[in-house]
């Protein structure tokens, strides 16, 4: 057995003996039955309420349905991409503010980072949806969703970037400075490239949060996956099946992103990240 697949949870027990093997077999059988009963009751609830009827599922064989879902998905990805980009840029600025040599900027950046991390995305969305128009500013709908999502992500991005910068050994900076590189050149040529390499898994994990947060786009009527799902529901009068399919699509996207993050973490020998 190679050391890689052997995790702590495998090491917790000894190789089971005859008696233990029997007990495990019995427990396995019982748990299988329990899970089967669980699935049976879910299926029964679906069946009793006619949720398996063809009218709820047949439109999923139509091309137009999937094209509509794909359109919504494009909306989601556009909003998520824009939000991610903005979060990275603002996060970068916050991080530089946090680590630069000016005490006042450090303070301001710290307060802003803590503020964006302590306030829920939905509150920012309501701010841009209800309060910003009161000030006479009318933003296009894609910005009404992607700006709040970006703001609530940028504090975390800043902290992630900072942890990457801190992970670069001090000697590197000293060496670069003693070679006569300027402070800013040291940062852009030596420190930052290594820092970003360290935090790529964490940044990808943050994209998952951004994608999740864009689901609130229905609040502002931006045509994302969730909003298009609503249209499908009213067209085909099929609520449960559409929402289930949409939820599964979100789960698959985020699952893949998380897997990519873990795979990169493994390759670059950095630790994988768990975010909210």
């Amino acid at each position: 057995m190679n050391t890689y697949t052997r995790t702590v949870r495998d090491a917790l027990y000894e190789e089971p003996g005859k008696k233990a093997k029997k007990q495990i077999a019995v427990a396995t059988a019982i748990s299988l039955v329990a899970i089967a009963v669980f699935i049976f009751f879910i299926a029964k609830a679906f069946y009793d309420n006619g949720q398996f009827d063809a009218k709820y599922w047949s439109f999923f064989t139509k091309y137009t349905t999937w094209r509509f879902i794909a359109n919504g998905l494009v909306g989601t990805l556009e909003a998520a991409f824009l939000a991610g980009l903005m979060a990275f840029i603002i996060g970068m600025i916050f991080m530089i503010g946090r680590i630069c040599n000016y005490k006042i900027l450090n303070r301001i950046a710290t307060v802003l980072i803590e503020f964006t991390r302590g306030v829920p995305t939905l509150l920012f969305i309501y701010f841009f949806f209800l309060i910003v128009p009161q000030l006479g500013i009318n933003l296009p709908s894609i910005f009404r969703i992607s700006i709040p999502v970006a703001i609530s992500a940028c504090g975390v991005v800043a902290e992630v970037l900072r942890s990457g910068v801190n992970a670069v050994p001090k000697g590197q900076k000293e060496a670069a400075l003693s070679l006569g590189m300027t402070e800013s050149k040291t940062f852009t040529k030596i420190i930052f490239p290594q820092a970003i390499h360290q935090v790529i898994p964490a940044l990808i994990a943050e994209i998952v949060i951004v994608v999740k947060d864009t689901t609130f786009a229905y609040v502002i009527n931006f045509p994302d996956l969730m909003q298009n799902a609503k249209v499908l529901i009213s067209n085909y009068d099929a609520l449960l099946s559409v929402y289930l399919v949409v939820a599964v699509i979100y789960i698959i996207i985020n699952y893949i992103l998380n897997k990519i993050s873990v795979a990169i973490a493994r390759r670059t020998q950095t630790s994988p990240v768990i975010t909210r």
Partner: peptide
């Protein structure tokens, strides 16, 4: 873990509020 780590909160809440009643729950 994989289901609930990856589902957006809004999607789960909508399923609970609007879809469960379709199953008489």
């Amino acid at each position: 873990v994989q289901i609930f780590r990856n589902i957006p909160g809004a999607a789960l809440l909508i399923l609970l509020v609007y879809a469960l009643p379709e199953l008489d729950l």
